[in-house]
Design a binder for these strands. Structure first.
Length: 468
RNA sequence: GGCCUGAUGGCGGAGUGGUUACGCAGCGGACUGCAAAUCCGUGCACCCGAGUUCGAUUCUCGGUCAGGCCUCCA
């Protein structure tokens, strides 16, 4: 079985074939760094991280170029900077650092490139210039607007014919627009806002052009995979596609070509019945959640539903994620003396659920099956144990799980002093048990329980872990 | 108003034209000094109606309900 992915443009699953297997390219829309990102913002981060890992596994670690942009020019950033009386870079640097730290805590690898809008300004201006030059865009009242009439396929990605959109539009149409659907490529800055010189006057870029320019600069067209949240299909990706194609058509020629071979969109994370969004005020920040919950458990919860399905975020889902990881790490702890190796399953068999449009819930079921098999093999001291462990760890790695030491997973919340104290109590209890002094043994266990420590007696002595 | 998704057991969540994964929770048992962990066993669902079919949870149509997009948005 080979990799197949659901392509929003085709509205079906298609076999994935990169244009060049030695240079597989993926671009995912990243954050606007004006605040901490909420947990829903991290769903695509984790989802496309799994795809990134999978592609690296299939095509080689150095063969995959994954660019995720950072929007660091934006009204909200300006507002925040003005509010605090600091330059915008103070805001964007602060929240980009937090974003990257949170993403790392969720087990996401760093993309191979993380371009920033402010550092792509030359490419943005050059691209707008090309669009103006071939009449795909026009300047008006200090703005430059993309001419949606120049691209016959406009609306194809989102399945919205132009005239229909106009009919249902609730937006006020700016008077300088030739067509209501035309969108801004360049706009004048207000006083006090960051400003760049351009042939159309001083100002700053619109949001959509940034991604197209970065893709050209970092990856080159066409790219293999373009990802993002489903809410970006329209207008963001539709606009990106239109300007990206038109920037490559000659003057007077018909725009043609391919921008991205695959468009992937993840479903929303919901709080109860509604989407999580800053405007609804129902957000949970990953930054806050990570203070009390292991990043790996959050990652598990984010991948527990297929990426295209909506995901309801609840405390219970998080607890279940934690329980699942407890189970897996428990198996690994019991199998710690087994060295992974031998001939495991074929790579493709192993990865089959992920090859089918990144089916993470099915892959998790397989992870658990392998863990159960490993546990049984270890218990029976079966010769198959090393191979099973190898399969388990290989699949876990592609999913970004089980990279920690089991002991750290269970005891990671305890500092050295506490560990010493716990170990002392465990020894005292072991002595009491050896003397069959059950009253004393149970008293010590109660003391440990009060410390949020759970004791587990085993053939090789008692072990312990921090409870949630 | 237009466009687009989804509906699976107590909960989460895959998948399938004919025995409905997996996990959590529940129940019974084994193990244990008692527990925990683990193991064995077990109950529980495919929104409604019509159609196609030998057979539909799966395909088609209609309906209901829920959500999203059309405006910044992962």
């Amino acid at each position: 079985m080979s990799l197949s992915l659901y392509d929003t443009m085709a509205r079906k699953k298609r076999p994935f074939v990169p244009s060049d297997p030695r240079r597989v390219t993926m671009y995912v829309c990243g954050p606007t760094v004006y605040n901490y990102s909420h947990i829903g913002n991290f769903r695509p981060v984790v989802v496309f991280d799994v795809l990134f890992r999978l592609l690296r596994r299939l095509y080689g670690e150095d063969a995959v170029l994954y660019a995720a942009n950072v929007t660091d020019v934006d009204d909200k950033i300006n507002a925040k900077a003005a509010d605090e009386g600091v330059p915008i870079s103070a805001i964007t640097d602060r929240y980009l650092a937090a974003y990257n730290a949170d993403a790392a805590a969720l087990g996401a690898l760093m993309p191979t490139a993380q371009p920033r809008a402010t550092q792509t300004m030359e490419a943005i201006i050059a691209m707008i210039g090309r669009l103006v030059h071939n009449n795909s865009a026009y300047a008006a009242e200090g703005h430059v607007l993309f001419n949606t009439q120049a691209f016959g396929d406009y609306g194809r990605l989102s399945g919205r014919p132009l005239d229909e959109m106009i009919a249902g539009a609730r937006v006020e149409v700016a008077p300088y627009k030739q067509h209501p659907a035309d969108f801004v490529l360049w706009k004048p800055s207000k006083p006090g806002e960051p400003i760049w010189e351009s042939p159309w006057g001083p100002g700053r870029p619109g949001w959509h052009i940034e991604c197209s320019a970065m893709i050209e600069q970092e990856l080159g067209l066409p790219i293999d995979i373009h990802g993002g949240g489903i809410d970006l299909v329209f207008p963001h990706h539709e606009n990106e596609l239109a300007q990206g194609i038109c920037a490559h058509s000659s003057e007077g020629g018909h725009p043609h070509g391919t921008y991205a071979h695959f468009w992937l969109h993840n479903g929303f994370l919901n709080m109860g019945e509604e989407k999580m969004s800053k405007s609804l005020g129902n957000v949970t920040l990953a930054h806050d959640l990570l203070k009390q919950t292991p990043g790996e458990a959050i990652r598990w919860a984010l991948l527990a539903a297929h990426y295209r399905q909506p995901l309801a975020w609840t405390d219970d889902a998080l607890n279940q994620a934690r329980n699942s990881l407890d189970h897996l790490y428990g198996v690994l702890g019991r199998a710690r003396h087994i060295a992974a190796g031998g001939s495991g399953a074929l790579l493709e068999d192993q990865l089959e659920p992920l090859l089918d449009d990144v089916n993470t819930p099915a892959a998790m079921a397989q992870l658990k099956k392998l863990a159960t098999d490993l546990d049984a093999a270890v218990r029976k001291d079966a010769p198959s144990a090393p191979a099973i462990k190898q399969d388990l760890m290989a699949l876990a790695e592609v999913m970004g799980f089980l990279q920690a030491d089991p002991q750290v997973w269970f005891q990671g919340g305890a500092d050295e002093g506490l560990k010493g104290k716990i170990d002392g109590l465990i020894s005292a209890r072991d002595a009491a048990r050896a003397a069959k002094d059950w009253v004393e043994a149970d008293r010590i266990r109660a003391e440990l329980t009060a410390m949020n420590v759970e004791v587990m007696d085993g053939p090789a002595g008692a072990t312990w872990r921090i409870k949630e």
